[in-house]
Design a protein around this nucleic acid. Structure first.
Lengths: 231, 231
DNA sequence: CCCGACGATGACAACGAGGTAACCGAGTTA
DNA sequence: TAACTCGGTTACCTCGTTGTCATCGTCGGG
């Protein structure tokens, strides 16, 4: 995938599809197309793309439903999804992680924005998927199984906590501000309060505490949070 | 964003302008205003803002034309631009292809959305916290981890002491007056007593003393303070 | 050796950052 | 449909940090 990542476009309006194609092909991405959820499904079954751009409104099964199904299937769980929403549709619903999407773009969009988000997402994913398995101190996160263990015991985590932990484990020994974490973990389109990060850190710590590993997530007052393997 | 980023608002409708102003000023942003492209141009020529919010429809030169010109000029190429559009205003394609904006907000917009997008854009622009490492004598300051060590032992410091130490370590063997330290460490708009520097030096020394490193911060009577690696 | 200026120090009150619990709304499951 | 889960928001509270001041100590020149 280092050369020409493959993107699956799921879009029923030919005009938009053309615009997407034109913009992305120009940047050297490999493209595949589907006009609805059914076609998309079989395209994915045939071969896993590196990223999916999905229209929110589709004939038949909606984009959101489809995205959720992708999240439910272990094979496609880690597949990055960008959702395309028309107008200012329902920004609230798409926001956060509820829709299962990693990012979204509102139509009308600019080519620059599209490219930027696609690249950001591919970049964001890559280092974390690197070895399929991240280890920090006693923690072992298996991206394939989508679980975290300490002493072979699985730690129960919500999706948000999991993503947060995965990001922190992918960049240990580094401080991240709440804002940076929002960008990297939630995606920079999520209108989320910075204080919400605190709450998720709290929940993450609670979960870790049950396995005496809460000290791995540290607070750096006035700056942000950090994951450490040592001290 | 430690210090009040400056935003240029380009909007001809007073009502919208007021709303923007009210919303952003409340969050502590520095604001400048322009009613049309001409005013905006001279405002930008005078001093580069950190971000521009630009109405799509403007009297005279349109927002998009203006945005394009900003992209063309090397000085303003990297300037983040958010375009304000009324909901059904324009066909997708024109918008997508012609403007070089970084983000869009459709009117009517929520204050939260506005703030979130502005913050996201400003955040994205600031570079990742560098992974540099400063060493002076036995002291090692790691900016990525955001901590200081001597013999691999972490030194507990408040945020102010940390910044002070970082500055001194970045310029070892040099004397700085209290005034200069206030400018460099606290920022030149802080209404802080010069004597306060003494107190922070004291606290810094106390923290260093626990690791027998207090001699690294020296007083130069009548002048200021200095950090040294030798002696 | 003494005095005056400058720096060190300890005390303190105000503030702000972060931890935490409770709440709400949406989605999922039984 | 009701119970439950999960994510995000909010309000409250606590504690550490911070800037200031008054006082004490000390250096250095006359």
């Amino acid at each position: 995938m280092s050369l020409s990542p493959e993107i699956l476009l799921v879009e029923d309006e030919p005009a938009i599809l053309n615009l997407l194609e034109f913009t992305l092909a120009d940047k050297g991405f490999g493209l595949r197309k589907a006009m609805n959820a059914l076609q998309a499904r079989s395209a994915i079954d045939a071969k896993l793309p590196d990223l999916v751009i999905l229209d929110w409104m589709l004939p038949g099964e909606s984009g959101v439903q489809f995205a959720r199904k992708l999240r439910a299937d272990p094979r496609t769980r880690a597949l990055p999804v960008i959702i395309l929403t028309a107008k200012a549709e329902e920004p609230d619903k798409v926001m956060g992680l509820e829709s299962g999407a990693d990012d979204y773009i509102t139509k009308p969009f600019s080519p620059r924005e599209l490219i930027a988000r696609v690249n950001a997402l591919l970049r964001r994913r890559t280092p974390e998927l690197g070895g399929e398995r991240l280890t920090v101190g006693p923690l072992v996160l298996d991206t394939a199984r989508h679980d975290v263990r300490v002493n072979d015991q699985v730690i129960a985590l919500g999706a948000a906590e999991f993503k947060l932990l995965r990001f922190l484990m992918a960049h240990p020994e580094r401080v991240f501000s709440r804002g940076r974490l929002l960008d990297q973990v939630w995606g920079d389109h999520a209108y989320i309060e910075e204080r919400t990060v605190d709450v998720h850190v709290l929940r993450l710590r609670k979960a870790l505490a049950e396995h005496n590993a809460e000290h791995l997530v540290q607070t750096v007052r006035g700056v942000g949070y950090r994951m450490t393997g040592n001290d």
